[in-house]
Amino acid sequence: CHSECLGNCSQPDDPTKCVACRNFYLDGRCVETCPPPYYHFQDWRCVNFSFCQDLHHKCKNSRRQGCHQYVIHNNKCIPECPSGYTMNSSNLLCTPCLGPCPKVCHLLEGEKTIDSVTSAQELRGCTVINGSLIINIRGGNNLAAELEANLGLIEEISGYLKIRRSYALVSLSFFRKLRLIRGETLEIGNYSFYALDNQNLRQLWDWSKHNLTITQGKLFFHYNPKLCLSEIHKMEEVSGTKGRQERNDIALKTNGDQASCENELLKFSYIRTSFDKILLRWEPYWPPDFRDLLGFMLFYKEAPYQNVTEFDGQDACGSNSWTVVDIDPPLRSNDPKSQNHPGWLMRGLKPWTQYAIFVKTLVTFSDERRTYGAKSDIIYVQTDATNPSVPLDPISVSNSSSQIILKWKPPSDPNGNITHYLVFWERQAEDSELFELDYCLKGLKLPSRTWSPPFESEDSQKHNQSEYEDSAGECCSCPKTDSQILKELEESSFRKTFEDYLHNVVFVPRKT
């Protein structure tokens, strides 16, 4: 048989008469490798580009789960590009990614509803959504962080984005990388972005840091009482949809009607710091009717980097990364020049730590249904340095008659930039024990000054392991946590139920 035959053949030295091919099969003959313009397919066939392209389009058009959109890589027609490569849609070739590779997620039936953290986790790592997304989240724990972890990498949506009755959302900033909504599939009414009845939605994105392009379709905003109209108009300008909307697409009466839409800028007039305090004062603000001013709200939190936005980490279910302080308005003076500047002394802060701070007014709604208010920009203030805590785990070892090696770990709280350490030492008198000992005694162990690591005695271990207080009263049991108490109650309830079950099964009433 021919060298490319495997198993047997019907005619000697003829690659077209093989029972099976050793390498690849091409047009009725066995070959060692697939010549151009053919590609290896499933490690035994040679196919042309049209064959591989037909497989790709067949799966793409069917949208069946589990099928493969075949691509070409290293002269092979394979189910998908290997790690580190992405497909070129024009020629199906796998090309190296520039940075992290995109991950295209194809949605069944063309859309997916995100109504819980669990459903959001199914899209973790996706960068391109081939379909439409509907966000409908009523509640949950730590929602802002969970949504950002699972949806934060999405850069492109081919269909539309719909935010509907998501009472738990305060902001859409968890879509931190969303840059493009194509609108290839539109919501009824030709809408590519749809926001309806979101009672706590206050911000779409921080438009000073976020760009969003909507290729096709219109915007729809109705019944978002805490979303200011200025935020919607800003989205029109940034996304390129200005002029597409009709009169009733953006409701003037049901958007922002319960919001404090600040239209003035508060400026800080005085800032002073110490290692654990920050004193702030800002310019006074009074609405047209000074009785509408209820006070100020001061927001602050630790910020290692200057990239904080107002609604980071917030949701309507209680999660809030900001510390909020309510401040009463100052006494009002008739003389504008003698107006008191409101302020606040922030206490209990960490030394040498940068804080993000902003302040906003708290006002009631005027009778004319106009909203007044003022808010400052987010500023960054760093507390002063102070003395560091003591170095940890000092170790001293003498390696000769004239040297001592000293080692330690950095302090747990540096409280500033540590530039150097101060080492103090003092000579001590020799131990009298060394002169009084009889060095001729056998088995004498000389006193040693070398360091030995501390260890816990058996008594201390027994005390720590004991669940009861000892007789001397030195140790006591740790208080039980809520989960331990709940577990004990469940076990007790189970024992009672099981005992009742045994009584009912074992003891049967005697027939009379």
Rank of each mutant, 00 (worst) to 15 (best):
L279P: 00
Q216K: 01
W344K: 15
L147Q: 01
D393F: 15
N224M: 10
E146K: 03
I135Y: 01
C317V: 03
E148K: 11
S396W: 08
D393S: 15
I114K: 00
N248P: 06
T371G: 07
W352L: 07
A303R: 09
T273F: 12
T371H: 14
T241V: 14
N198R: 00
F268A: 05
S401D: 08
P287D: 02
A144D: 13
S158R: 10
D328H: 10
M297C: 11
Q339W: 05
N211E: 14
L362Y: 03
A144N: 13
I181Q: 00
R247H: 09
G295N: 15
G183S: 06
L172S: 04
T353S: 09
C317P: 03
S321F: 11
A259C: 14
K301C: 01
R370H: 02
L345D: 14
S260H: 10
P394L: 10
G131E: 01
D312M: 12
D249N: 07
S400R: 12
S173F: 11
I405H: 04
K162R: 14
S389P: 02
R247E: 02
I379G: 06
I181V: 03
E237D: 11
A259Y: 02
N255S: 09
Y300E: 02
P388V: 00
N130T: 11
K112L: 13
V359Q: 00
I134P: 00
T371Y: 08
K277W: 14
S274E: 10
R138C: 01
K253I: 14
V397Y: 14
A303L: 05
F193N: 00
L107C: 03
G140F: 03
E302H: 13
C317L: 03
N387T: 13
I134S: 08
K226Y: 10
L293D: 04
S396M: 03
N141V: 12
W282T: 14
Y300I: 11
G139T: 09
D115T: 12
Y194K: 11
Y285L: 03
S192T: 02
E122Q: 08
A251L: 10
S401G: 07
V238Y: 14
S116I: 01
I405G: 09
E148L: 12
I137N: 12
N224L: 13
T353G: 14
A316T: 14
P336T: 05
N150M: 11
T127G: 15
N307D: 15
S401H: 06
L279K: 08
G125M: 11
L133E: 01
N307A: 07
P342V: 12
T353A: 10
S389V: 01
D276R: 03
L196V: 14
L212D: 00
P329L: 13
T309L: 03
S158Y: 07
L294Q: 05
T241E: 06
R165E: 01
S166K: 00
L204F: 10
P304N: 15
D335C: 11
E187Y: 05
L227V: 06
I250H: 01
S158A: 15
G240N: 06
N307R: 06
V397F: 15
F358D: 03
M235A: 07
N263K: 09
A385V: 11
V117A: 08
D257Y: 12
S260P: 12
Q258A: 09
E262L: 05
Q203K: 12
E283K: 12
P329W: 13
K177E: 08
S166N: 06
L349H: 00
V397K: 15
W282C: 15
V324L: 10
I135V: 04
G343V: 14
F358I: 14
S166Y: 03
N248E: 15
T323Y: 13
P388L: 01
E310V: 02
H210V: 11
T273I: 10
G131L: 00
L169H: 04
Y194P: 01
Q121S: 03
T323W: 15
S396P: 02
W282S: 02
I378E: 05
N198I: 02
L252A: 11
L201Q: 03
L252H: 11
T371Q: 12
T113C: 15
L143A: 13
F193Q: 01
L266Y: 02
K337S: 08
A195F: 11
K301I: 08
R244G: 14
A149Q: 14
T364L: 03
Y372Q: 06
S119L: 06
Q121N: 03
D289F: 01
Q245R: 10
S321N: 11
H233F: 07
W344R: 13
D257C: 03
P388A: 02
F193G: 01
N263P: 14
F220R: 04
L108D: 00
K103W: 15
G243E: 09
K350M: 10
I278A: 03
Q203A: 14
S274T: 09
F299G: 10
I181F: 01
K218M: 07
C126W: 01
V170T: 09
N200M: 13
C228L: 03
E302A: 14
F220K: 14
L108P: 14
T273K: 15
K360P: 00
T127P: 04
L123A: 07
I135N: 00
A168S: 00
C228E: 02
K360L: 11
R179N: 12
S401T: 10
A195G: 07
Y305V: 14
I214M: 08
S400M: 10
A149V: 14
P342T: 07
E231Q: 06
Y223A: 08
P336L: 11
K301P: 00
R176F: 06
G243M: 11
P329I: 05
Y300D: 00
